[in-house]
């Protein structure tokens, strides 16, 4: 394995643990123990060697040193009825949390997002899968609206005093 990652990433990884609860709470589609995890994939062949990671460039009092980080593997997945189509299509490019952190959006808002992912960002979502994604997202937003009523911005919501907890 590579060197320990930056403090930022370490903090991110510890925050991920907390996020698991948040996702389960937000989605609220199945019972406890809802989120699953997958093992972190092995580093690809030819990953940067320790020797390369130590290379330096020096000039006029400034030294730049080769750098590498381990980005945390995201072990959070969509849960509940209809989640298969979400996990098959959405998490290839981004975390489930990007979706579950969204406020309650209308069906039209979600359709615009799905259309953007397909049309602009070239997500390989088939015509067969698109309706299931929209159904899941709409159901999630109904749940979010119910949980957040009366409205209070999630991002300004509960945080520990040191500000290290995440999201809703």
């Amino acid at each position: 394995m590579k060197e320990p990652s930056s403090p930022q990433i370490s903090r991110a990884m510890s925050a991920v643990v907390g996020l698991g609860g948040a996702v389960a709470l937000t989605v609220l589609l199945v019972s406890a123990g809802a989120h699953t995890s997958l093992p972190k994939p092995a580093p690809p062949p030819g990953a940067v060697s320790a020797a390369t990671a130590r290379a330096k460039v020096v000039g006029r009092g400034v030294t730049l040193v080769s750098e590498s980080v381990d980005l945390p593997y995201d072990s959070l997945f969509f849960v509940g009825p209809g989640s298969d189509v979400m996990n098959a299509n959405c998490t290839a490019c981004h975390s489930a949390s990007m979706v579950t952190n969204q406020p309650a959006l209308t069906v039209e808002d979600w359709k615009a997002e799905v259309d953007k992912m397909r049309g602009v960002y070239k997500a390989s979502v088939t015509d067969d899968d698109a309706p299931g994604i929209l159904t899941y997202l709409s159901a999630m937003s109904l749940m979010t609206a119910a949980l957040n009523s009366p409205a209070r911005p999630a991002s300004a919501g509960s945080r520990s005093s040191d500000g290290t907890t995440s999201t809703k």
Binding site: A12, A15, S95, S97, N101, R159, T167
Partner: peptide, 27 residues
């Protein structure tokens, strides 16, 4: 940091950091 998204990373700086530091620490 406040984790908004793991991949691609979105990390938010807690407000308490800005009270302690006029220049935000790199980490």
């Amino acid at each position: 940091m406040i984790l908004q998204r793991t991949r691609p990373p979105l990390l938010e700086t807690p407000m308490a950091v800005f009270d302690k530091h006029l220049f935000t620490p790199n980490d």
